[in-house]
Nucleic acid binder design. Structure first.
Length: 263
DNA sequence: ATGGCTGCAGGATGCAGA
């Protein structure tokens, strides 16, 4: 089973690019972030034509997440628990059945948090505490569980072309990185790092300043695997070539391969 | 390398992103 995460930076602006990659890579489950669309405006038929079941959690203008799956969803839930006043659409979770069990997938768009020293950074850290609490609950289920998305966290210096350029950025603050480590230390496996610990495995290149051409990238899109999912891990790849396509997102897809009977 | 771009809402340009 191929499970992908991709911040597509606007589903309506990216529809042709998205469909091209889905046809090329044929992932079984896809976590999309920054759809920037309300549910009613999501071009679901285009994805359904490729054989996907579609579940969205959108809002007007910004944010928004979606799940695509070739297998039908047994359950779907929208929103991250822990703050009923949070109106930002940044989390959706679904369960699909495979032979002998289930796979649970959480799709997240973690707040950027810039600039530091403002309520935006406080919101980021609070959101990460809520995510950890939710993840802790889900791990009790002892299921294959994949928590995938745009974490907006650069975990390590080797995850940036020039870490010094990020020292005052919310994505690389010690508090952000510690919260990510705390989440990992619940028992998750960073899928890419389980198969490749080399530097330069970036998932984002800014639109500005020729960042792609200069390879000024960062790694901020991650798939975290529960022990039951990590046991199935067969590989993980960053589809970096997609950044060079026409009308690209500033993020590229990351795909983890999990072995299940039949998929 | 603190944004030189891009998408969205709305119908000009301001906001948000990372």
């Amino acid at each position: 089973m191929r499970i992908a995460t991709w911040n597509i930076n606007g589903v309506k602006a990216r529809i042709e690019t998205a469909l091209s990659w889905l046809e090329e890579a044929a992932p079984d489950v896809v976590c999309l972030q920054e759809i920037k669309s309300i549910d009613e405006g999501f071009p679901r038929e285009a994805f359904e034509r490729l054989g996907y079941n579609v579940e969205t959690h959108g809002q007007k203008g910004f944010n928004g997440v979606a799940l695509l799956s070739k297998l039908p969803f047994d359950e779907v839930s929208r929103g991250l628990p822990g703050d009923p006043d949070d109106v930002q659409a940044r989390f959706i979770e679904g369960v699909v059945s495979v032979k002998g069990g289930v796979v649970r997938v959480g799709c997240l768009y973690l707040p950027n948090g810039n600039p530091i020293g403002t309520e935006k950074f406080d919101y980021k850290l609070a959101w990460m505490r809520r995510l950890e609490a939710h993840a802790r609950e889900r791990l009790l289920l002892e299921e294959p569980f994949v928590l995938a998305g745009d974490y907006n966290v650069i975990p390590d210096g080797k995850d940036a072309w020039d870490p010094r350029a990020w020292v005052n950025d919310a994505l690389y603050q010690p508090e952000s990185r510690m919260a990510f480590r705390s989440l990992l230390n619940l028992g998750f496996t960073d899928a890419l790092r389980a198969v490749d610990d080399s530097p330069g495995r970036y998932t984002f290149w800014d639109y500005q300043a020729g960042s792609w051409q200069k390879n000024w990238g960062i790694r901020i899109d991650h798939l975290l695997l529960s022990p039951q999912a990590a046991d199935r891990l067969q590989g993980c790849e960053v589809a970096s070539h997609v950044r060079g396509w026409e009308k690209p997102s500033d993020h590229v897809p990351v795909v983890a391969m999990l072995g299940f009977e039949g998929v």
